[in-house]
Design a protein around this nucleic acid. Structure first.
Lengths: 232, 232
DNA sequence: CGACGATTTGAATAGGATCAATGGGAGTGG
DNA sequence: CCACTCCCATTGATCCTATTCAAATCGTCG
């Protein structure tokens, strides 16, 4: 593959500790491709042929059943997806599609599994990454089961605020439709949740959100170290 | 520790491939203890000092926030819990309590992490176990997001039916209160869900359930390979 | 300007939760 | 063996959250 993005990939936590030799071998076999928005990269039920890395852009992971659809996660650079299926040599449990123009690195699953056996530093990185993924899903599950829609939104806003430098103004990272799906609600309900948060200093203007009463919002959201990335 | 249950522990997938030497060392440091029902073994937020194995009995994993409580999983013999926290040397995201008289093996986290580094066969087993755990939570998450309460119950009944030998009669593995919590509903709602399933051949008599219209029940449940252990 | 998709708002509905009351065993003590 | 008690399960009534369906509005892009 071409090397323009190699340095950042090398810095990604999965590969940082990998031996030079294995890294080169893996990248030799990998494909770096550009995709437009709305391209389906993987479909649930398919065999795990590749590990995916989002190098630029964004990928939405989602699942379907009974005619319903649920957004499971959004993957931003540099992040991997469906590592567990690759390691287990199993079928994907989720589908993935780009939500914007994206640059995606596809690594044949076999190369990952081979390196895993040859390179113990890489094996450790895989375990750590898997443990992180596991803990993230547990947190999402708790978020969904233990909070109302308004509380989930409030905490998500606090998270973005934290990520974006605590300036009092947030830019939503996706359109509201997708944000709603990610939070486990309908777009209509998200709209209403924003209205509910108005008394807590939340002002919406398109994709730009102003937070003018952090204290009040935090009181409502009750951020929790064991659920949220922000909090503390 | 005492050795009465050693053979079954040795057979547990986490330890099956471990070197004799490491297994002995790990078990040397472990404690096997009997607990009555309703004993809190771990509390979310605590540091991961031990990996736990359920040798006999049953442990309920649950989480709390905002005065609410959610059951995350039930662990039966032989099963481990909070492996991810142990590997990451992080805080537990879930609490665990026995639901019945149980025999629990407690392995100091440090021994697990040490063996993990020394024994590559064990490392592989850990990765596999973590990947399994991850995929299980994803399935639970899909189950919750993509199905109604009645559908979740129907599929759970089919799962138990499958596990228990497809005799047409199921014995519920826990009391209904806990089953309700596990399925993400209230006990009242579980009761009503059973009533809803009556036209599909589901007859309740205490903890014993009769299924007399498998075809109808399956049509309603729509079991899914990518969510359910049964199905197929 | 006009069209189309995204967002918001409104009204009606559904799925579950909560609150309250009743029924039913299992275990205890007489 | 029976009465009593307590806890669990069921049932009924009501409330609440969130979904659905419908319509209006906003924004953007050609």
């Amino acid at each position: 593959m071409r090397l323009e993005n190699l340095p950042e990939i090398r810095k990604f936590k999965l590969f940082k500790t990998m031996s030079e030799e294995n890294f080169d071998a893996v990248m030799q076999a990998a494909y770096l491709q550009n995709f437009p928005a709305q391209v389906r990269l993987v479909t649930e039920g398919d065999e795990a042929d590749f590990l995916f890395l989002v190098v630029e852009g964004c990928v939405e992971l989602f699942a379907t059943a009974n005619g319903r659809e649920a957004t499971m996660a959004m993957i931003k650079p540099v992040g991997s997806f469906i590592l567990a299926a690759v390691i287990k040599d199993a079928r994907y449990l989720m589908s993935g599609r780009t939500t914007e123009k994206s640059r995606i690195l596809m690594i044949p699953a076999k190369n990952i599994r081979d390196s895993f056996e040859k390179d113990s530093a890489f094996a450790l990185a895989v375990v750590t990454e898997l443990a992180d993924c596991y803990r993230s899903v547990i947190k999402e599950y708790k978020n969904l089961k233990l909070r109302t829609a308004v509380e989930r939104l409030a905490n998500r806003l606090l998270e973005y605020h934290c990520e974006q430098g605590e300036t009092g103004v947030i830019e939503l990272p996706y359109d509201k439709k997708r944000l709603a799906a990610l939070l486990g609600m309908t777009p209509e309900n998200l709209s209403r949740a924003f209205v509910t948060l108005k008394p807590y200093g939340v002002t919406v203007s398109g994709s730009s959100i102003t937070l003018s009463d952090m204290k009040g919002l935090i009181t409502l959201a009750k951020p929790n170290l064991l659920i949220d990335r922000h909090a503390g």
